Computed example of a mutant assay.
Amino acid sequence: MSALNGKAILILATNGFEQSELELPQTRLKEAGADVHVASLEPGEIKGWDNKNWGRAVNVDKTLDEVDVASYDALVLPGGQMNPDALRGDENALALIKAFFDQGKVVAAVCHAPWLLIDTGIAKARKVTSYKTIKQDLINAGAQWEDAAVVTDNGVITSRMPDDLPAFIAKIIEELQEGKHSRRAA
């Protein structure tokens, strides 16, 4: 039996996501047995950012208004600069992220995606890591920033960069096997 049989994972992204930060978790989590969907602001396709150019398009399975948080066990937030910056300006995207957190589900953010944990209030008083350029943003939001490949704080998983994706994905699998998390207030 696969590690994640019966688990459903939502990846929330929009144009400008870091290509590897969406595609590698999507592939590996599917290989582990999870049902993985991509949600975005608009239907159709979203385009990744790969190194210094636009990357490949990824099909959107659901728009935000079609997502039922109760149907999922985890939320994965890819980085890239453009993707989380666009999502943090959308109240529905922030509400969706907060709903996953409030229901004790795994919330995993890599690279620049911890910006979304700031705007949802999730970062406050929580141990996190991120890409180095948003370290101060997280500290200013009350987070306890650590220079580590992956940091987990009660079901909230953060990671620095694409090089850390194998450890990030392994931690998502581990946290999903543990189940729901009761969360402490900030």
Score class of each variant (00 low, 15 high):
81 Q>R: 15
164 D>C: 13
5 N>Q: 13
80 G>H: 07
40 S>F: 11
24 L>D: 09
147 D>V: 07
167 A>Q: 15
9 I>H: 09
179 G>S: 09
99 A>I: 01
151 V>A: 02
135 K>G: 09
120 T>H: 13
98 K>G: 00
144 Q>Y: 10
177 Q>G: 06
79 G>V: 09
171 K>W: 07
167 A>K: 15
148 A>T: 03
174 E>Q: 14
150 V>S: 03
7 K>E: 02
9 I>Y: 08
180 K>W: 02
33 G>C: 08
67 V>P: 11
76 V>L: 10
47 K>W: 10
7 K>N: 04
136 Q>Y: 08
167 A>W: 10
58 V>I: 13
10 L>G: 04
24 L>Y: 11
28 R>E: 13
44 G>W: 02
6 G>N: 07
67 V>T: 12
157 I>Y: 05
115 W>C: 00
25 P>A: 09
145 W>K: 15
65 D>V: 12
63 T>C: 06
51 N>C: 04
128 V>C: 04
132 K>Y: 12
97 I>H: 02
155 G>F: 01
69 V>H: 12
128 V>Q: 01
167 A>V: 07
139 I>M: 13
111 C>Y: 04
16 G>P: 06
107 V>F: 10
14 T>G: 06
146 E>I: 02
90 D>A: 07
140 N>W: 07
106 V>E: 01
93 A>F: 11
102 D>S: 03
177 Q>D: 01
6 G>R: 02
169 I>K: 05
149 A>L: 03
58 V>F: 14
122 I>F: 00
98 K>L: 02
185 A>I: 00
134 I>G: 04
72 Y>K: 11
19 Q>F: 09
113 A>C: 11
168 F>D: 02
28 R>Y: 12
106 V>C: 01
